[in-house]
Design a protein around this nucleic acid. Structure first.
Lengths: 198, 198
DNA sequence: TAGCTTTGCTTAACGGTGTTAGATTATTTA
DNA sequence: TAAATAATCTAACACCGTTAAGCAAAGCTA
């Protein structure tokens, strides 16, 4: 009867090995290089074995996503409970979110679909820089002279870009976002950042 | 001699057809379903022909990215030139950016790597909602009672999420972002949004 | 212990992918 | 018309996710 337990323990271990092997491959070669056969190689089995533990490749990614949210939730709770002031708590939670994204980069990528693949073209391409420069120049123009350092403009530029691109990403991955709210958030954020620059 | 021109015109046309077929496939089935053989089918050739026009599949995506930036740049210029006040110009440019992203959704996706694939799991998964709920609850707590409607909390929540996720995405796709600036942007944005809620 | 059943795992295959080499057909040039 | 060149296709390679079939070891039953 105890052998049943032993076997179950080995099965659990293999399941964990599959998940760990997947992350390892993602760390070494990126998510796009992940394949069932590579996972099988790493856990020293052949590919069909994996299908006894996961329905298919997507199920592996889904499980990793689940574990990522679990881990993120715990980190945010811990961060929150270090403070009592709500504003401090909120900032700590966002910082925990931020830290998690970079400490567990691969998990964050699979959670939010941040692929690093196709945009790896040289940034010196002038046509790519044109929109950036236009925005940068305009931001510089708005900022009053006494504040106008390159770093300050950079900061405002990245703030702008982040909020807009972030909103867009969210709207593209999450389709159930309340329809009217997005443009309102965008406009609020824009005017908010603008007034903060002055 | 004029036949040379005719042939060149046909070649140019085929090149354009390849790019258009790619976008069409992306619109119909998403970027992940794009394949050389499907493109070939659409332009009524066989797959190896494509390699006379583009080095490989990635080169097609790179060219589409280039054209996307070109188009975006023009739209932003047009938007800017409708105003004279810098703040209005800036807002118009960001709105043009926003509008482009949704009008040319596939181009924006290939430009910024927003994949819609793996995160299509049911949003009712409780472990996925936990971090969201924590943030939502805390935001609600900070907002003074007289402003505290569900829509207002939603707006602030999405603003937060956007700026943070946007910053992260940018940092993951663009590696040349100045190192010190990001956390500063994050903190500024957070405290900015917080003070705007009060 | 002999035979049967279940389990664990492998090999082989299917249809798909990006990509390349070689053969084939059509067109242009001499 | 014959040779040379260009345009295009077929076939193949190595990889992918996934499934079916088979083999070998282990466990169970008589």
């Amino acid at each position: 009867m105890a052998s049943k337990d032993r076997i179950q323990r080995l099965k659990d271990e293999t399941r964990i090995n599959i998940l760990e092997a997947s992350i390892d491959i993602a760390k070494e070669e990126g998510w796009s290089a992940l394949s069932m056969r590579k996972i099988a190689d790493k856990i020293e089995y052949t590919a069909p074995v994996i299908y006894e533990y996961f329905k298919n490749k997507e199920a592996i990614l889904t499980e990793l996503t689940r574990q990522g949210y679990l881990q993120l939730g715990k980190l945010m709770e811990e961060a929150r409970d270090k403070y009592t002031d709500p504003a401090e708590q909120l900032e700590a939670m966002w910082l925990a979110y931020w830290n998690f994204a970079f400490a567990e980069k691969e998990l964050y990528q699979v959670m939010y679909g941040v692929e690093v693949n196709c945009c790896a073209l040289e940034s010196s391409c002038s046509v790519m820089k044109a929109p950036s420069d236009m925005l940068w120049d305009k931001i510089e123009e708005i900022i009053p002279e006494e504040k106008r350092t390159e770093e300050y403009v950079d900061t405002k530029y990245y703030t702008f870009w982040s909020v807009v691109h972030g909103l867009i990403s969210i709207n593209m991955t999450r389709q159930q976002t309340p329809e009217g709210i997005n443009k309102q958030v965008l406009k609020d954020a824009i005017s908010g950042i603008i007034s903060s620059m002055r």
